[in-house]
Simulated assay, not measured.
Amino acid sequence: MAILAAQRMPLSGLQPTYAAAAGGGDQAPVGEKLYLHVRNGGGGSITVTLATPGTVGDLAVADAAQTVPASGAAFFPLKAAFRDPSTGRAAITYSGVTTVTVAVVQLP
């Protein structure tokens, strides 16, 4: 599991540096204007899941999951709802990691 660092986007723009998605999942900071960008270079779709550690009453809140199509990309907001109380970061897993790259971007 890798800990992804946020890359601040200046007003002039950003060409983010991407990392390979980790087979055991990744962790990322959470907060306003933070987004996870996932690029799937593979021939099949993958599912990206962000763990939601909260509960409402006695019921667990469902994790957020989104499919990223083959040769596609998707953005995920890294809101405080995804903050794991033990790490302070979001826990992210992928159904596949071959040719999947990720970056965390902080908007201005």
Rank of each mutant, 00 (worst) to 15 (best):
M1V: 08
M1E: 06
A2S: 13
A2D: 13
I3G: 09
L4N: 04
L4R: 03
A6N: 06
A6P: 01
Q7M: 08
R8I: 15
M9F: 10
M9I: 13
G13C: 14
G13H: 14
L14T: 06
P16E: 11
T17G: 07
T17W: 03
Y18S: 06
A19V: 07
A19T: 07
A20V: 12
A20M: 08
A20F: 09
A20S: 15
A21F: 04
A22P: 00
A22I: 04
G23S: 15
G25V: 00
D26V: 00
Q27R: 14
A28H: 02
G31Y: 07
E32A: 12
Y35G: 01
N40D: 12
G44K: 15
I46F: 03
T47G: 05
T47R: 13
L50C: 03
A51H: 05
A51L: 09
T52A: 14
P53W: 04
P53H: 03
P53V: 04
G54P: 05
T55W: 14
T55L: 15
T55E: 15
T55P: 04
G57H: 12
L59Y: 13
A60C: 11
A60Y: 10
A60W: 12
V61D: 08
V61Q: 15
A62S: 14
D63P: 09
A65M: 12
Q66W: 09
Q66V: 10
V68I: 12
V68M: 04
A70P: 09
S71I: 08
G72N: 11
A74G: 07
F75L: 14
F76A: 04
P77Y: 10
K79E: 10
A80H: 12
A80M: 13
A81V: 14
F82Y: 15
R83N: 07
D84W: 00
D84A: 04
P85E: 09
R89F: 05
A90I: 03
A91D: 05
I92S: 01
I92D: 00
T93N: 10
S95D: 11
V97L: 03
T99R: 08
T99S: 14
T99M: 09
T101N: 06
V104A: 06
L107F: 14
L107D: 15
P108I: 13
